[in-house]
């Protein structure tokens, strides 16, 4: 084991996969000499050179399109979007071309590509409306894509390796607020399988279903709730698509209470989706209404105080759990 930040763990994952498999290469804006807008690819240009760490023009559509073309022709591209918000420019290539490539052509090809993108808000360092969105909801809707959002360095590295080795297009979301979060990471090669959720805290009273930065907010809330006799079980979804319903259902059938927590917008969002699945899969076990914590349907404001009003905070989680558990 060694200590690594979330950002370092991702960088280790990229480097190890590039050493292991010569068909893996990187492309994106400023990822070469500059090392990436958030420094994720620092040092990789020196080790792998300009052929495999490719600086692109500021052209998100062709970053995704060229990744797809190279993937169906036999390589394993890992594309970087400078911000998840900017992937809207590449949306057609990702959603209409990459996601459907295998399906629409009746299985003639596969598209083993990863599109990495930083998402989410940073509070005091946030840059406003098109630098802070949780774009998870944009992608989970799309058949053919897999969508990943790790919450720890261990998961980030292990899930990234799985994503690179996977034969499908994978949207790999990285939460900006977690980039400097440090934790233990194994020295040896390991993977975290896609499609498997992780129980980040055991508890018997209520299940919190969540992901990304909200995992840490839920864990923080759990400490407070424990003082009140509420033991919160925190499930980190990790792979947003395909969803590990079994882990969620097993937990809710044990605790009989559920709160769904997502940083994305409320309408048509993942929290609502998780809630509906729990409702249909666990109704007979539920003792109370499902708690629903998500962002207000308002763009992410630049001002810190306004941002905190729009996005879920630990206090919102506390309130939702207390209400669901009848302790409000």
């Amino acid at each position: 084991m060694h200590k690594a930040t979330y950002k370092e763990a991702i960088r280790e994952g990229l480097a190890e996969e590039m050493r292991r498999d010569s068909s893996v290469f990187l492309l994106g804006e400023d990822i070469g000499l500059h090392g990436g807008a958030f420094g994720l690819t620092k040092g990789l240009f020196a080790e792998f050179g300009p052929e495999r760490v490719r600086d692109t023009p500021i052209s998100e559509s062709i970053i995704a399109g060229a990744a797809l073309g190279s993937a169906v022709a036999g390589l394993r591209p890992v594309a970087e979007m400078m911000f998840g918000d900017f992937s809207a420019i590449a949306y057609d290539q990702i959603v209409n071309a990459a996601a459907k490539a295998r399906f629409q052509f009746g299985g003639q090809c596969k598209a083993p590509m990863v599109v990495r993108m930083p998402v989410g808000a940073l509070s005091w360092k946030s840059a406003g409306v098109v630098h802070c969105q949780s774009v998870d909801n944009w992608y989970v809707q799309v058949p053919g894509l897999k969508v990943v959002l790790p919450s720890t360095p261990y998961d980030a590295k292990g899930l990234l390796k799985s994503a690179i080795r996977d034969d499908n297009p994978v949207i790999f979301l990285e939460h900006k607020a977690l980039y400097e979060y440090q934790d233990e990471v194994p020295d040896e090669d390991y993977v975290v399988p896609l499609g498997v959720a992780d129980v980040k805290r055991r508890g018997s009273t209520c299940t919190a279903v969540t992901s990304g930065k909200m995992v840490h907010f839920a864990l923080k809330a759990a400490l407070e709730l424990a003082k009140e006799g509420i033991e919160l079980e925190v499930i980190d979804i990790r792979t947003l698509k395909p969803l590990d319903e079994e882990t969620i259902f097993a937990s809710v059938r044990k605790t009989h209470h559920a709160v769904v927590i997502h940083e994305g917008h409320r309408t048509g969002g993942l929290a609502a989706d998780w809630g509906m699945r729990i409702y249909t899969g666990c109704l007979d076990w539920l003792d109370a209404r499902i708690g629903w914590v998500a962002a207000h349907d308002v763009p992410i404001p630049y001002n810190d105080g306004l941002e905190k009003k729009v996005l879920p905070q630990p206090a919102d989680i506390l309130a939702a759990v207390r209400e669901t558990c009848g302790a409000a």
Partner: peptide
């Protein structure tokens, strides 16, 4: 389809 051919050429 144009960028996809460019990507194949890159590969």
């Amino acid at each position: 389809g144009v960028p996809i051919a460019v990507g194949a050429a890159l590969a």
